[in-house]
Computed example of a mutant assay.
Amino acid sequence: MTAHRAGLVGCRACGRVWPEAETTCARCGSALMPPDRRSLGAVWAWLLAGLIFYIPANLFPMLRTSTLGGLMGSSESTILGGVIELIHYGSWGIAAIVFVASIVVPISKFVVIIWLARVAGRPATTRDAHRRLVIYEIVEFIGRWSMIDVFVVAILSALVQLGFVASIHPGPAAVSFALSVAFTMLSAQSFDPRLIWRGLPLRNRKEHE
């Protein structure tokens, strides 16, 4: 038995359930909206925007470094290029963190959100529904750690400003990456996890027998 089949609607803000006739949660004041697959349109829209900005985030430089006003040379590093440089200098741990946070996590989030949006509301067992909910909660939890590259660039840009001697500036990829992460987080937040339970059978096989 789900809340929907019991004639109840859950509040997405505080989690309390109310009769379907109610339109406002008396606990937190949020509007009560029944789960609707049409809400997946916002999920797909935000996800597409995140994918579009993730491409230049990997193609353009994330960091620009200049030494002695450029007389001693200047360099530009993309996300993957920065990982390779860290490995070259022996910083395997930092390289692994940047690679996971900037490449593995974003791509995994894209794949998981696409999968959740496709299976939302489709037939599922109780075990499948619980597994999908856990995966959704993991995606939401790790979303806050996806901007590690942006944080590192911002800190370096603020600290390493020695004028003519040396300076570090964020590249165009920093903005694209930040927007990609933000849009992906909005996509995950737009997903209604209540749709996961809409595909459960009316009764399980043992009860039917």
Rank of each mutant, 00 (worst) to 15 (best):
R131A: 11
I168K: 13
G163R: 02
F164P: 04
F183Y: 03
D128L: 10
G171D: 02
A182R: 00
E137I: 14
W145I: 08
S157W: 06
L133Q: 12
M185A: 12
E140M: 11
I168R: 13
L156D: 01
I168G: 09
L186D: 14
I148R: 04
I155V: 11
A178D: 09
I135H: 01
E140C: 12
I168M: 15
G143E: 00
F177W: 11
H130F: 07
F164I: 05
A166N: 02
V150N: 01
M147G: 10
Y136N: 02
V134M: 08
V160H: 05
Y136S: 02
M185D: 09
S157D: 08
F164Y: 06
A182Q: 00
L186K: 08
D149L: 10
E137L: 09
V165R: 11
V134T: 10
A158F: 10
M185T: 06
V153E: 00
G143I: 08
V181L: 03
A178S: 15
P172L: 09
I148L: 13
S157V: 04
F183S: 15
L159P: 03
A173D: 00
V152E: 04
E140G: 07
F141W: 08
P170D: 02
R131Q: 10
L186Y: 04
L186S: 11
I155P: 14
V160I: 13
D128S: 09
F183Q: 08
L159A: 12
